[in-house]
Structures are given as C-alpha cells and as structure tokens.
C-alpha cells in the first residue's frame, strides 16, 4: 500500500507535529501517513506524539535524502 505523504520539509518544530495532528482525522483508520520532515526535533517528537495520542509509530526512513517518519492511524 502506498503511504499517504505529508510534506513538512522546511518546517520548524512544532509545525510538522501540528500538521500530522490535523491530517490524521482526514484519513481512514489503518492508513499509513509518511511525514517528510527535516527539522531535527521531528525525530523525537513524532514518535512521542504517537505515544501520547495512541497512534502507531512505524519507524524512520529516508526519501530523496530527507528524513521521513511513518505513522499508522489506529483510532
């Protein structure tokens, strides 16, 4: 399944997490959202957000040389 991509490149914290929080309710439960974010705080804050909001953090990857984070909507 192709992940749903949310481009937050160039955004400073906490903007990528805010964008993720706003985007999540617009996708069906079970969807994987791939967040592209080059802010260094995203590497910590996206997994922390998943833990606090009871969503699944799948892991980090790299897309075209930029960091990306995969999150699955659980609720």
């Amino acid at each position: 399944m192709t992940p749903d991509v949310l481009n937050c490149l160039g955004q400073r914290c906490p903007l990528p997490v805010i964008a993720l929080a706003k985007h999540l309710p617009t996708v069906p439960v079970g969807t994987i959202i791939r967040v592209l974010a080059d802010d260094p705080a995203a590497a910590v804050d996206i997994p922390a957000w998943c833990r606090m909001r009871a969503q699944q953090y799948i892991g980090a990857t790299t897309v075209d040389g930029s960091p990306a984070y995969d999150v699955r909507r659980l609720t």
Partner: peptide, 17 residues
C-alpha cells in the same frame, strides 16, 4: 543551534513546548 535538548531526546519524550 536549533537542536532539541539532547536530554529530552535521549529520554524519547516530547521536546517541543
């Protein structure tokens, strides 16, 4: 440096706000 706290990052807790 616009880097989050290395302490908060090592703990894996939210670094913003």
């Amino acid at each position: 440096t616009l880097q989050p706290s290395h302490v908060l990052a090592a703990m894996g807790v939210l670094t913003h706000g």
